[in-house]
Structure formats: structure tokens, C-alpha cells
Design a protein around this nucleic acid. Structure first.
Length: 167
DNA sequence: GTTGAGCGTT
């Protein structure tokens, strides 16, 4: 029987819920610090990264916010989508990608190929992807944000047993 | 401080 499972990269219209939110339409003057301040209202943040243009060093106007827990990411997506930030209406959605691509080494990393070398494409291609490396931002995770210890961290409704789905 | 769709290679 054929698998009905979708490809994990997903489609762009309906990204599956996950801990990483893409935030689009940012002002060029919004900083990662600003984003952390806003989004930590919904739960602990693992990381925030704005995407910068390589030459100009300016923000490209979008960013990724990594939550520790998917449920907080869901909540943040609902509440922060359409919010105004630094004079711009921001769009918030689950990210379809998980992390920046690993830079390609630029040299052939596969086995030496003698003669029949259809293998080469296989090895070359694999290097640029990296969408599934779930451990990537584990090692980049910083110490918890100071913001949600100063009272802004929303308490769970009715304090029921709550098992966070971590990512 | 461009006026702006976008899913990333510090």
C-alpha cells in the first residue's frame, strides 16, 4: 500500500505545526531582541534569528523564532499573526524549513568513482539539504530568555496537568 | 531610517 504521508518539507500554504515560526514583513529596524521580547510572552524561546542580506548586512525583513514547545508556538502563531510591530503588520506562520542550509563544501565529498559514476549526483545533492537535522538547534540553544521570568510568562489556564510537547 | 513579497547558507 502506498504511503499517504506528506513530504516533511510540506506545502507553503498550510505548514504543519512545529516549534519554529517564520515571521515575515518585519521592519528593517526590528531586532532579534525585539522579537524575543514579543514572542516570549507565549512561552520559552530557544532561539531567534533574523535573516540578513549578506552584502548589505541589512535585515531581509523576516525571521525565525524557535519555541521550546509546539503548543506555545501554536499560540504565538495565532496571537501574533497580523500584529503590528515597529509600524508593520507582521505575518506569522509555522516554518516550512527548520534551519539554514549547511553551506556546501564546494568539493566532492563522495567515494572516488571509477568508471560508472552515477553515484556522484546522489552524494552531491545530499549535502545541500539538511531539513531534517533535528538536533541542529539543540546545540545552538541558549540559556533561557530573561523576559519570561519577569512576569510576562502566561500561566497555563486552570493549572491542569500539562505535558509540553518539546521539539 | 525607500515605499516590502518572501522560508534561512553569520
Amino acid at each position: 500500500p502506498m504511503s499517504t504521508r506528506r513530504r516533511h518539507v510540506g506545502n507553503r500554504a498550510n505548514p504543519d505545526p512545529n516549534c519554529c515560526l517564520g515571521v515575515f514583513g518585519l521592519s528593517l529596524y526590528t531586532t532579534e531582541r525585539d522579537l524575543r521580547e514579543v514572542f516570549s510572552k507565549y512561552g520559552p524561546i530557544a532561539d531567534v534569528s533574523i535573516v540578513y542580506d549578506q552584502q548589505s548586512r541589512r535585515s531581509r525583513g523576516f525571521a525565525f523564532v524557535y519555541f521550546e514547545n509546539v503548543d506555545d508556538a501554536k499560540e504565538a502563531k495565532e496571537r501574533a499573526n497580523g500584529m503590528e510591530l515597529d509600524g508593520r503588520r507582521i505575518r506569522v506562520d509555522f516554518s516550512i524549513t527548520k534551519r539554514p542550509h549547511t553551506p556546501t563544501p564546494g568539493i566532492y565529498m563522495g567515494r572516488p568513482t571509477y568508471g560508472s559514476s552515477r553515484r556522484r549526483d546522489y552524494y552531491d545533492r545530499g549535502y545541500d539539504r539538511g531539513y531534517d537535522d533535528r538536533d541542529y538547534y539543540r546545540i545552538r540553544r541558549r540559556s533561557p530568555s530573561p523576559y519570561y521570568s519577569r512576569g510576562g510568562y502566561r500561566s497555563r489556564s486552570r493549572s491542569q496537568s500539562y505535558s509540553p510537547r518539546r521539539c
